[in-house]
Design a protein around this nucleic acid. Sequence first.
DNA 1: TGATATTAGTTCGAGCCTCGAATTATATCG
DNA 2: CGATATAATTCGAGGCTCGAACTAATATCA
Lengths: 404, 404
Amino acid sequence: MRRIDLSNFQVATSETARDINRRIVLNLIRTHQPISRADLARYSGLQRSTVSVIAEQLIKERWITEGANGHTPRGRRPTFLHLNKERVGIIGINVRPILTTLALADLDANFLAQDSLPTPQDPKQFVSELVPRVRKLMRARPELTCEGIGVSLPGRVDLETKRLVFAPNLGWKDFDLKTPLEKATGLPVELENAANSCALSEICFGRRAEGLRNLVVVTVSEGIGCGLILNHQLVQGSTGTAGEFGHAAVVPDGLECSCGNRGCWEMYASNSAAIRYYTQAASPARATKRRTQTAERTINFEHLLRLAEQGDSKAVEALQQMAKYLGMGIAPIVAGLAPDMIVVVGEVTRAWQQVGPIIRETVKQHSFTCAETQIVPSDPITQPRLRGTIALVLLKHFGAPAIA
Amino acid sequence: MRRIDLSNFQVATSETARDINRRIVLNLIRTHQPISRADLARYSGLQRSTVSVIAEQLIKERWITEGANGHTPRGRRPTFLHLNKERVGIIGINVRPILTTLALADLDANFLAQDSLPTPQDPKQFVSELVPRVRKLMRARPELTCEGIGVSLPGRVDLETKRLVFAPNLGWKDFDLKTPLEKATGLPVELENAANSCALSEICFGRRAEGLRNLVVVTVSEGIGCGLILNHQLVQGSTGTAGEFGHAAVVPDGLECSCGNRGCWEMYASNSAAIRYYTQAASPARATKRRTQTAERTINFEHLLRLAEQGDSKAVEALQQMAKYLGMGIAPIVAGLAPDMIVVVGEVTRAWQQVGPIIRETVKQHSFTCAETQIVPSDPITQPRLRGTIALVLLKHFGAPAIA
DNA sequence: TGATATTAGTTCGAGCCTCGAATTATATCG
DNA sequence: CGATATAATTCGAGGCTCGAACTAATATCA
């Protein structure tokens, strides 16, 4: 039961009921397509007449189209409805420190065209390089009306100003990406943290996680980020910085982190940490802090994974150590939020056969009730970071209406 | 933006708009009373005619009443509306290991009558002792129609079965309190964990926390519990066990906890922990584990607080140690959930002048961005545990409607 | 082959809801 | 007293869902 937010509510008008039911029908079509009007009425509980009117409206607005006829044991054959893939396009942009990928997607969140560019150091230059590529993507399928642009960022976006306020890996500080992108393209732009994007991708399109009420995504790369879906909603916190469990301490008075805190989770369970474990094991005598940092430049995580796959015992041990700390950081999340599922995103999932059992075991040891929480790796094929940006835009039409 | 839950949604009917607007109006009356229809229209954005119809309906159903006339510089005087305190009663029950308190409250969550009883060991006996007292409370103001019973419990309630599944301090195991209480009284019963109740109390009636979007309540007594309000909603987790940050580790391989984990937060920051710190300091030689446990029976936390108030340095140090660990456990919550406010509930708030600054300082040191999160003590006068049970019942009428 | 049963989808009036203009009620001020 | 202003009500227009009645299409069976 939600409390009504008296500082920001929407009253109901005569069209509110339609808005609500239309969104429900649209969602049912998306998840059950192809589906007949009669079945929509059965699934939704609405009258067949009401479904017909809504369907007519959706067809007129070209959100859905009629398809082939279905089969029934007896009686008139149903007309199938399905989402109109020829109507709407969404641009998704996944900004990462080295490479930015972008794509045009249809209503089913299938990618129709993709592109990528090296991420420049300067955010202004980034915008000027990005805009022509966005335009090119839009021209790739000119029959599609572009509904908006979703952007996934390795940082945090201020809830009010929509400015990027914290992106240490990018080196950008307090930059407004939304306004110039909207001006240049004429499309509404939605920004979101990468972990949050992944979380949206999972609950909207995830094979196992779709529709879950409570889900936590843990993105593991140079740092660790968390995307929290609780009560079917993204948790952004008071200023948009929720999810920074990566900077919660797992080792009291441990290693100093760039955030100023000591013993942060991401100092022990990130890709960088695994590399540190490896180099320390490989050359224990020289394992001072300085040495470690220079070593990080010579071996990267990709390399480490390959070594582990080849059976290099030091690499395997480094991954196991990383997995143990991943589990130790996930444990309090399981205890505190009791999500239905935790999805791990990142290169480390490639070694899930070795890493997964250790994470699960550590969580089991360190958390109070994890019986119900599944811990699974994300499928990188689905490109959750990029696909989440599509969800970001689609939720405007498919999400629950803003009411009360 | 919320994703629509396709396994559990409500379509809109012709009455949905009224339901929504009615709840908005009811909330505006509650927070702004006395208030005129014209002002309600201004605050809500609804037409004056619509407000009038809704007000008429609420008056007819005796939720509100017309009061005195107001004053305006010119023009017809407004008729004030306010909640009808003579209409609805709510029974609240706060179950604690030693003492159970219960009260009858009005629509403004003011207590009209209170009662208490020693909590018996046997849950069945508890029900049979409780029921006559509930009936007595209802008879105290026979003109009030009782809307329901809210119960706050030191344990966790399974979301589906509504059974109490985990209440170590009570010694009850998997007990159904709801069904017998509903049968005996004929009233709907809502059960909720005590920390969650406090959280509801704070966002519904709290002086500082009312209406906050993201709030975490930390209840500190023999153990530590957390009530999470995120996006104006209680977070219950997949099975109703969310909030058990008390069983997240703050000390790796630390003291063994009854939950089986090691180094749990509540082993270091609960009242019991403070007592352990005190007894260890008072007789360091005999501070084996066994000794400590027997000592706990001789000194209680109440006693410790009084010693600290009198300036006993060992007692003060014990509280400071407790405060430090409180801060260390709050830090990851601040980092991970970025709430607008953290409210600390428990006896320890009596020593807030000493404890508060240490908590704040520790959190500042150990969390990434706490600039926005206020950390405040709850006011025990407001009886948040008990008042939260009223919120539990009132939210059925004042909460956002279940839609889509 | 034609009657019957069955299912899909449409039509249309009843009833609920909000909106907004017009109207009524009641103040203050010069 | 009349002008002006504010509060509250009245009432028709238009949007919405419901549900009964109706049309359309198909399989079954005598």
